[in-house]
Design a binder for these strands. Structure first.
Length: 212
DNA sequence: ACCCAGGGTCATA
DNA sequence: TATGACCATGGG
């Protein structure tokens, strides 16, 4: 059986268990990018609080974020944790974003170039870059996170020690390159990890027992 | 009281 | 290249 059919079958079952997930939850692509940085190693419920603070302060835009001091920005995003680190990272990101000509400038770059540029920003690593590429720029990039690693290790499809790039290539070369599929797949993997499948163990749709 | 969450950087060997 | 310390809040 090809990797393609295995991965599609897993997707089919996840989708049957949980249905559409409406991801990424945000009002705009810019909010997605800010959220991608804020959610680094952090529960999403905490990120929501930080984003709401930014909205209440009318600070969820390039101009205000550039003007805002690092200290004041840290206060606003406090609930998301690592607030000093993330304040710096957001500042790095918005300065870069503005300099690069925002969406109209950046959307001209191909996937590989855009990814390279994102990774040059201090505070943006592979997963954050791919969140931004997939959900904000609608590029067909498969996001690898800890949940993905765990699930597919449990399924015996990967060893679990592979590098980020190796795993990303595995998914991207095994699946048809489709933004909608990649978005939905990643969202379902997260959903499956967070809300463990409550179906009977005999459930034919969930081939996986909850990871330990 | 402990554990973890939609990671990434930096210093060290 | 590869491991470890560090960042920090809030919910279980």
């Amino acid at each position: 059986m090809s990797h393609q059919s295995v991965l599609l079958e897993i997707y089919r079952r996840l989708n049957e268990c949980y249905g559409p997930q409406h991801w990424w939850p945000a009002d705009s692509p810019f909010e997605i990018m800010v959220g991608a940085i804020l959610t680094q190693n952090t529960a999403w419920t905490n990120v929501e609080k930080a984003i709401n603070n930014l909205k209440d302060a009318k600070a969820l835009n390039v101009h205000v974020l550039i003007e805002l001091s690092e200290e004041n920005l840290a206060k606003l995003i406090r609930p998301s944790g690592y607030f000093n680190v993330k304040s710096k990272r957001l500042k790095h990101f918005v300065s870069w974003f503005e300099t690069a000509g925002r969406f109209n400038g950046l959307k001209k770059l191909n996937n590989e170039m855009l990814r390279k540029r994102l990774l040059d920003v201090n505070g943006i690593g592979p997963e954050t870059a791919d969140d931004i590429l997939l959900y904000a720029f609608e590029r067909p990039v498969f996001v690898i996170d800890a949940y993905t690693r765990r699930l597919f290790k449990t399924l015996g499809l990967i060893d679990g020690t592979e590098s980020y790039e190796t795993l990303r290539r595995f998914f991207e070369s095994s699946l048809v390159s489709d933004v909608g599929l990649f978005k939905a797949y990643h969202a379902l993997i997260v959903r499956h990890a967070k809300e463990k499948c409550t179906h009977e163990s005999s459930c034919l749709h969930c081939m996986v027992e909850s990871p330990l």
